[in-house]
Design a protein around this nucleic acid. Sequence first.
DNA 1: CTAGGGTTAG
Length: 608
Amino acid sequence: MPPLLRLRDPTALLPSHSHLRALHAHLLVSGRLAAFLASLASSNHLLPYARLVLPRRPATLLAHNALLRALARGPRPGLAFAAFRDLPLPPDHYSLNFLVRAAAALAASAAEERPAVCAARLQAVSAHGAAVRWGHAADPHVQSGVLSMYAALGDVAAARAAFAEIACPDVVCVTAMVGALAAGGDVDAARGLFDGMPQRDHVAWNAMIAGYVHVGRSREALRLFDEMLSAGTTVGEATLVSVLTACAQIGALDRGKWVHWYVRSRGMQMSVKLGTALVDMYSKCGAVVTAMEVFESMAERNVYTWTSAVSGLAMNGMGVECLQLFKRMVSAGIQPNGVSFVAVLGGCSIAGLVDEGRACFDSMVKYGVDPWPEHYGCMVDLYGRAGRLDDAINFINAMSMEPHEGVWGALLNASRIHNRVDLGEYALDKLLAIESENDAAHVLLSNIYAESQNWKGVSRVRGMMKAKGVKKVPGWSTIEVDGKVHEFFAGSKSHPRYSEIELMLAEMNRRLRLQGYTANTREVLFDIEEEEKEGAISLHSEKLALAFGLIALPEDVEIRIVKNLRVCRDCHDYTKLISKVFNREIVMRDRNRFHHFKGGECSCRDYW
DNA sequence: CTAGGGTTAG
């Protein structure tokens, strides 16, 4: 019998019921039932068995707690509540800890479906109430659990209230609170709490770093990571994952490479999460080849890893390879999920693989994935981008759900690409009925009018925006020099080396004029005087970043720029020419994809 | 037998 206990997978015991019975007897006699049950946490096959066996004597609280723990961490955490109710003994702080964790897991799995959230809320309140009733609400483990439970529900106010009740919160509780505040979007409050912590360990640092990443304040995340290093705190894998995510967001390739080097130099084992974060970081920094090398070298990969790689290829304009990798993923036995399909459909779309994309979409049901609104948007983009606008419209008309804003947005973008003013107006109408304040949509329609020199249309859109108070999101661009990320806003002169940048801009314009370049002002939002327009677009943030890159980076280094919005046509033309005239490789990441400029050409073939 | 932080799209 003892050898059986050492089996990794308890389900290996399943074939014979008599075997189970014997094992059970043995466990009861040896008093090791609890330990056995605890080992079942990872296997849901034997949970029914455990639940059947446990109500019989001798019932130690230890064994019941082990069951609670297994249920809380299992696929149906709600079962822990029934088990808790049926406890034959008064619960201790362990029982309550597991109950609260179960409520947290329930909240996390409720996603955003209203009924599930309501149910989870009720369970959370009842778990919290039980902790108070049984006198374990002051247990530190229970307290941190209650905090993360409310955080998982997205109820920051409740988390705050619970935190206020804690007489002297320990590091763990404060860290949980930092996480709750950050998850609720109030990173500054989280930072205040973090700064006031008497001592911080690496988990606390990471909670704060991840909080910044979560709200898109990655530069601050990286700055905090620098402080963490100077503070001499041990850096764990989780922190490196957060840092890589920050690098991915702002395209900080040098910092990302540094993390990769750090991992190797410390001989850290490459876990799935770390590897996935690396693949993601390299992809989002435009270094697809390296991303794929990391991907191929990984010993273990999951859906996240594969999806990250598929999406990386799509982003970088490698649609054919993207589809190939997706097929490889399926043959490797990995179940694609909704995100995987968004990624592969995007790859098909940029490569113009209409039929292949359609086949992917049709295959979704086979993998048990119900199409989301996003997938319909991808399909409209697939047809629309390829110029098959009638198919796009037929597809929309045949949809089983009400088209959401993404669908109309895709149609609007297709109208822009194929110069279809009528369709563009139609799509914007529909879009505004859903999202009347969508700034990007207004800008897109305005650009469609501008492309066809319809200045009346342009000013009408401008009037609409003004009337509704819709403002264009300010554009920014970043560029990394010596591991430091520099940020530029349109027209801003605040950079310390601005005078040099201004000189370089003049030089760029001079050399471009010699090549016969005149600013393409068609896509400018407002109908203003020609000269003013030229002035306005010459200061788009990517041009500032480009000028700074030419000054600050050695000649044999590619210039890498990250932008928060879509590149406008003028900046795209401009950058193509710069790549030729200055003989530099330029990689520009915009909102949706990468542009690799070289010798006057762009990898997107002017199609974005 | 317990706790806090981390991975894919838009």
